[in-house]
Amino acid sequence: MASIWEYANPRKFMATSEALLPWTVGLAAATLGVGLVWGFFFTPDDFRQGSTVKIIYLHVPSAVMAINVWIMMLIASLIWLVRRHHVSALAAKAAAGIGAVYTMIALLTGAIWGQQMWGTWWEWDPRLTAFLVLFLFYLGYMAMWQAVENPDAAADLTTVLCLVGSVFAVISRYALDFWNQGLHQDRFQLLDGESDVSPVFAVPLLICIAGFALVFVALVLYRTRTEIRARRLRALLTQERLA
């Protein structure tokens, strides 16, 4: 019987991901291309924000993904913790860098947008600050992977860090709400019947979110493959040295 755990076998994973990768890359490029071109050139300007509103097509998808990447890392770490599948641990490692970059894109585009709308590059708003803290968590997680030499110990220690970090990231997010009033608008509904965003903007935005997600999938597959190859290379070199 086919089971999802088959892909925990590195060989099986390499074969499947090799077949999937070109499709994922192509689909990601197409989705992101359509979404961004539609968003940038074929949507009207907002009546208050002018053309600045178009930064939403980069800002919202990267912010959504920055949080979801951490959740994916948490799930992959849990799978490693429970079932000891190396591919899972390596996928979590591969995802961290992408998550950090998404967080940075969200922060930078947010700063540019804030400069136009609020007249400031940075404001100690709970949401903004929470993202900065999330960025620090990504940095710590990646530094932990770098610091430990034994790959199994590194996977275990980063898993513990990811679990504890997740709890503290959530606590920090809600603690910050007590701390300062926000400038950032509240979350809005996209998929509900009563969407807060006009469909003119919402449809290309959803396509962009899908595009960012697909880019993430493609990059994770690619980087996990790199990690597996690096691991294999290390094993071969050790073998050679011992022979």
Binding site: V133, L136, A143, I171, S172, A175, W179
Partner: peptide, 17 residues
């Protein structure tokens, strides 16, 4: 150094309150 990078983000809520 790694220790401070790991621990300081965890101190955010405590410091804040």
């Amino acid at each position: 150094l790694l220790l401070s990078l790991l621990v300081l983000p965890l101190y955010v809520p405590t410091l804040l309150f």
